[in-house]
Simulated assay, not measured.
Amino acid sequence: MDRSTDEAAIRRMFEALCEAWAREGASAVDAFYTPDSDYVTFDGSWLRGREANRRAHEELFAGVLAGTRLVGEVEGVRFLGPDTAVVVSTGAVLWPWQKAAPAGRRSRQTLVVTRGDDGRWRVASFQNTRVQPLPRSDSPFMRLFAAVLRIRLALWRWRHPAALAC
């Protein structure tokens, strides 16, 4: 089945959400979420429901997010059914003086979007995670880290021999 029209609508919804962030703040962003939506922030906080999401963002827009804009790009859309899709995107919050996001502030989001009775796609669930790649496994730091873990595991096994008897 060709889902290109639905995918285009979802991508437009994501772009409109980013535009609404800069233009109108929390009250405009609020309309892009379902009433019972879940929003997990990059620090792990869980906002349950559109109202909790709006209140948290109003506070942020009145403080640290004042004057910011949201930039992002949909990396992929996967349909789970006729009215549900998983969207993976990458984005960041920019202050007015920034043209691009510093690498350390990029986040990857996973959204579950649903089509409502009115035909509009809205976010039912949003998970936001900082992009923080691990160092290469052959880097000095990772080799040292692995060695320390092996020593610690050996000590644990020595102190807890019964835990390994299965």
Results as ranks from 00 to 15, higher is better:
45 S>W: 08
82 P>I: 09
79 F>M: 07
114 T>R: 15
59 E>Q: 13
68 T>Q: 10
48 R>Q: 15
27 S>Y: 04
55 R>E: 15
113 V>S: 09
100 A>I: 12
68 T>N: 12
14 F>R: 04
30 D>F: 13
63 G>K: 13
68 T>L: 12
74 V>E: 04
84 T>E: 06
74 V>N: 02
51 E>F: 02
83 D>T: 04
15 E>I: 01
13 M>Q: 06
51 E>V: 03
12 R>V: 00
13 M>E: 11
25 G>M: 13
81 G>D: 05
59 E>F: 04
58 E>K: 03
75 E>V: 06
11 R>V: 13
65 L>W: 13
16 A>M: 11
100 A>F: 10
110 T>P: 04
44 G>Y: 15
33 Y>G: 00
97 W>C: 00
101 A>S: 09
58 E>F: 03
86 V>T: 15
31 A>M: 03
106 R>C: 01
9 A>P: 02
82 P>M: 15
23 R>K: 13
77 V>C: 07
74 V>A: 10
106 R>K: 15
37 S>F: 00
13 M>F: 07
40 V>D: 01
88 V>N: 11
84 T>G: 04
15 E>C: 09
48 R>V: 14
73 E>S: 10
77 V>E: 07
44 G>M: 14
34 T>A: 09
68 T>S: 15
24 E>A: 09
102 P>C: 03
74 V>Y: 09
26 A>E: 14
30 D>A: 14
61 F>D: 02
67 G>H: 10
